Simulated assay, not measured.
Amino acid sequence: MTASLGFRWAERVVVRDHVRLSCRDWGGSGPDVLLLHGLAGHAGEWDATARALRDAGYRVVALDQRGHGSSERRPADVSRAAYVADVVAVVSELGLHRPVLIGQSLGGHTALLTAAAHPGLPSALVLVEAGPGGSNPGVQDAIGEWFSAWPAPFPSREAAVAYLGGGKRAVGEGWADGLEERGDGLWPRFDADVMVRSLDENATRTFWGEWAAVTCPTLAVLGQGEQGGIIGDEEYAEMVRLRPGALHGVSVPGAGHDVHLERPEVLHALVTGFLG
């Protein structure tokens, strides 16, 4: 057992095609929930949400997706299909019954594709700053340049929080929690080239067909802070058009892309209200 924020969670490991997948199992005896972090993130980003959902009566698991955190760092396959197959394997191996899939950013995209490919698997879908998107040929260069600019190793946690938070301490704390300590400082627990390759398909195509194939109730949580989120009005309007009556959307004022870190209490209230 490992201590986290004063509460306990157990590490559970699932191996699929020789790829190690590490999960934080928070326990609980109610309906199942699986939490999926975004690109370059880690399962610990969800600690506040996981604890609150467990205490509200859910059984909660958070996955370090392939290439991230305590999972396999350099998997050969980082296709969207591989991420989806990992979710299916975790659900099966950990005995999750029709879990609610909650994902932020790329994790939300993984949840969406899982719901499309396996309509009988989730009971509901929560997309936090995630959607079908449009092809973005420049996204990989932008992400690669961002990682290259990181002053790693960070000499201290405070330095990491200040840099990664961009003025928002809660965001910086969440990202800093994902770093690993070595003799010369704090380093990311991922390799930048793996992250860039994980976006191969997002750079070249859209996923509207998959979105239209989703059948379970869906909640979309969007950031509405000064810098805004990544889901624009046009994309959200098209999501509604393709699935009228099945999508519930909420914007969170004062929060940007990392809604789950900036306003975890608001996200918890939205999720439990939606599921209830």
Rank of each mutant, 00 (worst) to 15 (best):
L127I: 09
G138S: 10
A130I: 03
G103V: 11
A130T: 06
P132A: 04
E129I: 08
G131S: 07
T114R: 12
I143M: 14
E129G: 08
G107Q: 00
Q104W: 10
E93P: 03
P137Q: 01
G131K: 00
I102H: 04
P151C: 11
E145G: 12
L101T: 09
L94R: 02
T114M: 10
L101V: 07
S123N: 02
L96D: 02
I102G: 03
L94I: 08
S92D: 15
E93I: 03
P151K: 11
L127F: 08
L121R: 02
G131H: 04
S92L: 07
L121S: 05
P99K: 01
S92G: 12
W146Y: 14
G120T: 12
H97I: 11
Q104L: 12
Q140V: 07
A117K: 05
G134E: 14
E129C: 00
P132T: 02
S105Q: 02
A130P: 13
L106H: 05
G134F: 03
E129P: 13
L113V: 10
S148T: 13
L106P: 01
L101Q: 10
G138P: 03
N136T: 11
S123E: 14
P119S: 03
A149W: 08
V126L: 14
G120W: 04
A142H: 11
H118R: 13
I102K: 01
E93K: 10
L127T: 05
G95P: 13
P137F: 01
A130G: 12
A117S: 15
D141W: 04
G144A: 14
V100I: 10
R98T: 12
G120F: 00
A124P: 00
V100H: 05
V126E: 05
A149C: 09
L127R: 08
E129Q: 00
T110P: 15
L127H: 07
S135P: 15
G108A: 07
A124I: 11
P99F: 04
V91S: 08
L127C: 04
T110D: 12
G134V: 06
A130D: 06
L101F: 05
P132K: 02
G131T: 07
G144V: 05
H97W: 07
N136K: 05
S105Y: 02
I143R: 13
T114D: 11
L106M: 15
P151T: 13
G133Q: 07
S135N: 03
L96V: 11
P122Y: 03
P151H: 08
T110N: 13
L121K: 01
A130Y: 06
A116W: 04
L96H: 09
V126F: 11
S105I: 02
E93T: 15
P151D: 10
L106Y: 03
I102A: 03
H118E: 12
L94P: 12
W146D: 06
A111M: 14
V100A: 10
P137R: 01
P119A: 02
